[in-house]
Design a protein around this nucleic acid. Structure first.
Length: 695
DNA sequence: TTTAGGG
DNA sequence: CCCTAAA
C-alpha cells in the first residue's frame, strides 16, 4: 500500500436535529442483560419493544383494513387516536423481499387480533391490541403505542414518537447474497441516514426517535410514567404542558426522512386507519407470538463499528483540558434476519437496552433522560444546544404558580467535536461514510443530555426547574442542552474480560471501575479529580475490520491502517468517572455470521447424510455432505437438523421460510426416531455393530 | 475439536 | 446462528 497523504478534518460540532437515537448495539451477554432491569430502561425498553413490534408487524400484513372490535382477553379497548391521512396512504413496498408466505400464512380471521404486550420497564406493560389486518402495520402500531402511552400515563405530557426505519428489507435467499441498493444520502434528516454502507449487506434498522422534553416537570418524577424523551419533532403533536414551538429553522424535519422509510416498510396497501388499543397493566412477560420472517432488530446496524476507526477518544471539557480516552471497539452488529419469536426479539432488545442503558445513563430513571447531568461546557460553547426562547413566553412560567410551565425550544443539539483523518484519495462518499462512522462511534457509547444554565452545568437532577431557575425567563436565554456521549458502564465481572486493546483505558481509569454502583450518583462533584485518561490509539490488530462476505460496496474503503478516526467529544469528567469503561467485547464475537437459509437441496443432502450416519456424528455429516460448503459447520448442520425435526413436528401452517418438501420432513422424522432409538439402545448396552438406517 | 443443548 | 459446558 502506498502511503497516502492524509487529510484531517476537524469538526467543531455537527449539528443534528434535536433527537436522540436510542437503539444501541446489542449485547448478548445475559449477565449484562441482567443488569438492565426495571424502570431505568423504561423509555428505551418501551421504544425498543415497540420497534420490535414494528418490525414484527410487517409480516402480519393482511389485505383487510378493517378494524376488529371486541378483541378477546382485553378489558379496556378503545379507539386509538386518529392518524393523519398521509399516514394511511402509503405506497406498498416496491419490493417485498420477504418470504411470500409470510403474508399468507399469517392472515387470521377478522376476529383474531394480535395482542401485543409492550413492556415498559419492569413494572408497566402496555398491552396493545390491534387486529392483524388493520392496515399498515407499523404505523398502526406506532399509533397504538402512542395511544396506549397517552392513556397509560394519564397525561399527555409525555409524547413518544416512534419512527421506524426499515433501512433495508431484504432477506437473503439461501446461497444468494442480496445486494442492497446504495445507501441513501445522509442528509436532510440528521442522523437518520445512518446506513450500513460498508458492504450493503441486508440489514434493517430502527430509528426510534423520540422525544420531547415535553412535560419535563413531570418527567422529573415520572418513575412510573411513560418516558419523556427528546425530540425535535415539529410535526403535529403538541404536548399539553409544554408548548412545542415549531421550528422555523432549516433543521430538517425528521419526520420526512423517517416516514419515507416507513413507507417502505409497510407491506400492504391496506388503508386501515383505525385500530384498537388495549391497555392493561398486567406485568407479565410478553408471550411468544409466533411470527415469522421477522428481522432481528438490528438497529445495531447503526452502531456497527467502523472498521476504519482506529482511534476513538474522548476528551474532556475544554476548561479542564483533561484528556480521556476511549478505545475503539467493535460494536456488536448483526445483519441477520431471523425468524425469531417475539420473545426472542424481545430478548434481543433487552440486550440492546443494556448498552443503551449503560451507555446513556448511569443512574436514575429513563424518564429523566431530559434531565441528565451534562458536561461542564461553557454557555458559549458551540456544542451547546441552541435554545431558542424567542417565541417562548416564559414570563408566564415564572409566575410561580404551581402549574406554570416553561416554554422552550431546543433547536438542535450539538455533537461534540469529531476529528477525522482520511486519505486525500478517499472519495467524498467515503468521507461521508467516515463522518457517519465517527458519529456512530460517538453515539455508540450512549448519549446523555447536559443542561447548562448560564454556563453552569445543572448537576442536580432532582431540583425542579423553578429551583434551578430554569423557569425564569431571563435565564432561559442562557439555558443550553448538550448532547454528550456516555460511556458504557462496565459491570465489574466483565471488566476482567477486556481485551488487550482495553488495557490503556483500564490503566487509566481502573480505579474508577471499582466505584460501587451505589456511589455513582448523578451528581459527580468530586470527579474533577478523576485521573486523566490519555487517549491512546489501539493497535490495529485489536480492531480488525469487519469484513463482510458480500462486501459489495467496498468502493473506496480505506483500509483501516490508512484511515484513522479520532472522535474527540467533550466527555464530561462525570461521565468518565461514572461510566469509565466500556463493556469489553471480543472482536471475534462482534460480527454475527450472515444467515444463510438452507436450501431444499441442502436439506436433502443433510437428511441423507443423517440417515446414513446418525444424529450424533455431525462432523462426519459435514464431511460427507457439506465438505465443500465452507460456510456450513457441523454445528450448523446439527442446528439445522434440530430445526428440521421441529419443523417436521409442527403443522405445515406454522412452518416458515422456504417450504421443505413433506417427503423430506417425513424422512427427518423417521431418521430422528430411528437414531434416537439407537442411541437409547446404545445406552442400554455396549455398542455393537454400527447401525444404519435402511431406506 | 466435537457434541449436545439451551438461547 | 450464537454460546458453552462437557467430553
Amino acid at each position: 500500500m502506498m502511503l497516502q497523504k492524509r487529510l484531517d478534518y476537524g469538526f467543531s460540532g455537527c449539528q443534528v436535529p434535536a433527537m436522540l437515537y436510542f437503539p444501541k448495539s446489542a449485547k448478548r451477554k445475559r449477565s449484562a442483560r441482567r443488569k438492565v432491569e426495571n424502570k431505568q430502561l423504561c423509555a428505551i425498553d418501551l421504544l425498543a419493544t415497540v420497534a420490535g413490534e414494528l418490525l414484527s408487524e410487517r409480516e402480519n400484513c393482511a389485505p383487510s383494513p378493517q378494524c376488529i372490535d371486541g378483541a378477546s382477553g382485553t378489558t379496556n379497548t378503545s379507539k386509538a387516536s386518529v392518524k393523519p391521512d398521509h399516514l394511511c396512504q402509503k405506497e406498498p413496498l416496491k419490493t417485498e423481499p420477504f418470504d411470500q408466505h409470510s403474508c399468507n400464512d399469517t392472515v387470521l380471521g377478522p376476529e383474531v387480533a394480535t395482542k401485543r404486550q409492550i413492556s415498559c420497564g419492569s413494572t408497566e406493560h402496555l398491552h396493545i391490541l390491534r387486529p392483524k389486518d388493520s392496515g399498515p402495520a407499523s404505523l398502526l402500531v406506532k399509533y397504538d403505542i402512542l395511544d396506549a402511552i397517552a392513556r397509560e400515563s394519564k397525561t399527555l405530557n409525555n409524547r413518544v414518537d416512534i419512527s421506524y426505519s426499515a433501512a433495508y428489507a431484504v432477506a437473503g435467499r439461501c446461497g444468494t447474497e442480496t445486494n442492497l441498493p446504495a445507501s441513501p444520502e445522509v442528509e436532510g434528516d440528521g442522523l437518520t441516514g445512518f446506513q450500513e454502507s460498508e458492504n450493503q449487506m441486508p440489514g434493517n434498522g430502527l430509528d426510534i426517535n423520540a422525544v420531547g422534553i415535553y412535560g419535563m416537570e413531570d418527567s422529573m418524577d415520572l418513575d412510573t410514567k411513560p418516558p419523556a424523551l427528546v425530540s425535535s419533532d415539529s410535526s403535529t403533536e403538541v404536548p399539553v404542558c409544554w408548548n412545542y414551538l415549531p421550528s422555523n429553522s432549516s433543521l430538517p424535519k425528521q419526520e420526512s426522512g423517517m416516514e419515507h422509510v416507513v413507507d417502505r416498510d409497510d407491506d400492504d396497501n391496506s388503508s386501515g386507519c383505525t385500530h384498537l388499543s388495549t391497555i392493561t397493566n398486567k406485568a407479565c412477560r410478553p408471550r411468544c407470538i409466533g411470527n415469522h420472517r421477522v428481522r432481528k432488530l438490528s438497529t445495531l446496524k447503526y452502531w456497527r463499528a467502523a472498521p476504519n476507526i482506529l482511534k476513538y477518544s474522548h476528551i474532556s471539557d475544554y476548561d479542564t483540558e483533561k484528556k480521556r480516552s476511549l478505545h475503539g471497539k467493535k460494536i456488536y452488529y448483526t445483519r441477520q434476519r431471523t425468524q425469531r419469536s417475539y420473545c426472542k426479539r424481545r430478548k434481543l432488545f433487552e440486550r440492546c437496552l443494556v448498552s443503551a442503558s449503560n451507555g446513556g445513563m448511569y443512574s436514575g430513571d429513563i424518564p429523566n433522560l431530559c434531565e441528565m447531568g451534562g458536561i461542564g461546557t461553557e454557555a458559549h460553547d458551540p456544542r451547546t444546544a441552541v435554545l431558542d426562547t424567542n417565541d417562548a413566553s416564559p414570563s408566564q412560567a415564572e409566575q410561580s404558580s404551581s402549574y406554570n410551565s416553561v416554554k422552550l425550544r431546543i433547536k438542535s443539539f450539538m455533537v461534540p467535536e469529531l476529528f477525522i483523518e482520511i486519505p486525500e484519495t478517499a472519495t467524498v462518499g467515503s468521507l461521508k461514510q467516515t463522518v457517519m462512522e465517527a458519529v456512530t462511534a460517538f453515539l455508540q457509547g450512549g448519549m446523555s443530555i447536559g443542561v447548562l444554565l448560564q454556563g453552569k452545568k445543572v448537576r442536580d437532577d432532582n431540583k425542579t426547574l423553578r429551583q434551578t431557575g430554569i423557569s425564569c425567563s431571563d435565564k432561559l436565554d442562557n439555558l443550553g442542552f448538550t448532547l454528550e456521549p456516555s460511556l458504557t458502564q462496565t459491570p465489574p465481572p466483565l471488566t476482567s474480560l477486556r481485551g488487550p486493546h482495553f488495557l490503556c483505558l483500564d490503566d487509566a481509569v481502573e480505579p474508577l471501575a471499582r466505584i460501587p454502583p451505589g456511589a455513582l450518583s448523578i451528581d459527580q462533584e468530586a470527579t474533577d479529580s478523576t485521573p486523566q485518561a490519555v487517549l491512546t490509539s489501539s493497535p490495529v490488530s485489536d480492531h480488525e475490520p469487519i469484513h463482510s462476505p458480500t462486501d459489495a460496496s467496498s468502493l473506496d474503503q480505506t483500509p483501516a491502517d490508512k484511515l484513522a478516526l479520532v472522535a474527540l467529544p467533550p466527555v464530561s469528567i462525570e461521565a468518565l468517572a461514572v461510566v469509565p469503561l466500556r463493556k469489553p467485547r471480543h472482536p471475534e464475537h462482534v460480527q454475527r455470521r450472515i444467515r444463510r437459509p438452507f436450501s431444499v437441496a441442502e436439506v436433502e443432502a443433510l437428511v441423507q447424510a443423517v440417515e446414513k450416519l446418525g444424529t450424533g456424528r455431525w462432523r462426519d455429516v459435514k464431511l460427507r455432505a457439506f465438505d465443500s460448503a465452507k460456510h456450513r459447520t457441523y454445528v450448523d448442520l446439527k442446528d439445522k437438523w434440530k430445526t428440521l425435526v421441529h419443523t417436521a413436528r409442527i403443522s405445515p401452517q406454522q412452518r416458515r421460510g422456504e417450504p421443505v418438501p413433506q417427503e423430506l420432513l417425513d424422512r427427518v422424522l423417521s431418521a430422528q426416531a430411528f437414531w434416537s432409538q439407537q442411541q437409547a439402545k446404545l445406552h442400554a448396552k455396549p455398542p455393537a455393530a454400527e447401525p444404519c438406517l435402511l431406506l
